[in-house]
Design a protein around this nucleic acid. Structure first.
Lengths: 137, 137
DNA sequence: TCTTGATATGTTATGTTATTACGCTTGCGG
DNA sequence: CCGCAAGCGTAATAACATAACATATCAAGA
């Protein structure tokens, strides 16, 4: 099996660097965190990072966490998810757990059809403490 | 019945002004939007607005929309909701529809117990087009 | 080959959102 | 009256994001 952090070969240099930074991180990184990690590789301006992030998110290789203004690599390396993804964000250790739930997705779909609302994208973020950090408390 | 935009009487001046601004708005407002609306009432600094918003959100009188970095008055004026609230945000007209769904909440609860994750707060935001704006397209 | 268009890049400047730090004021219980 | 908690005012700054403009790279088609 391929390494879980292999990266598609058709990424541009900047996209590859940014995805690499996300893959090597334990937790979410802000665009400026990423920039700082990549100054040694020649990146100088926020826009270089934001542009790469846009593409990565568009392709499902990374996700934006709205409630943190930060980004994570997609956890599902080989078949980047379609549809609704939920994130559980631990306030203790900062780790993020990514999951999908068909029931929730259906339920939202039902609401949307009832209302005539055309869904384009959904963000779902749970803040709290992971098992390890609850234990530690 | 009371006016739908009545406001609790124990708010401070700044809190009242900020909630008033949200209540009179068609859609979400950023903190700086609110500040601009309230300069005539003596507000001068972002912090005055952020402090009021913190309290209002804490009391459930207003909600923060993470994906917009903006705020709305709670739609459910008299019994401010507990638990999970979802928001459908129209990219066309900017209006926000607020709703609760017990099934989704249960489903998340199940996931959380299975993982030992202690949920503190959940944000759920659907972006898309409302019926009116789909029609108009 | 040449040109054209799409995509990516680099750089500067600026816009937008949010917080830190500090000090004063107000109201209330002891 | 004192002390404390909550609120307020102000200035400065931090953190997040985009606009505007110029240049580069490369593949498809005349």
């Amino acid at each position: 099996m391929a390494h879980s952090h292999d990266v598609p070969s058709d990424l541009t240099r900047n996209q590859g660097l940014v995805l690499g930074a996300l893959n090597h991180s334990e937790g979410p990184l802000s665009a400026y965190d990423i920039l700082d990690k990549l100054r040694g590789d020649g990146l100088r301006a926020p826009l270089q990072v934001y542009r790469a992030l846009d593409k990565l998110v568009e392709r499902g290789l990374a996700h934006r966490l709205e409630s943190l203004n930060a980004f994570v690599a997609c956890a599902d390396e080989h078949c980047h998810r379609k549809g609704l993804i939920a994130f559980a964000i631990c306030e203790g250790c900062g780790k993020v757990d990514e999951f999908a739930d068909a029931v929730i997705e259906d339920r939202l779909g039902d609401w949307a059809s009832a209302k005539g609302f055309k869904v384009e994208r959904t963000t779902m973020e749970i803040r709290g403490k992971c098992a390890v950090c609850v234990e530690a408390a």
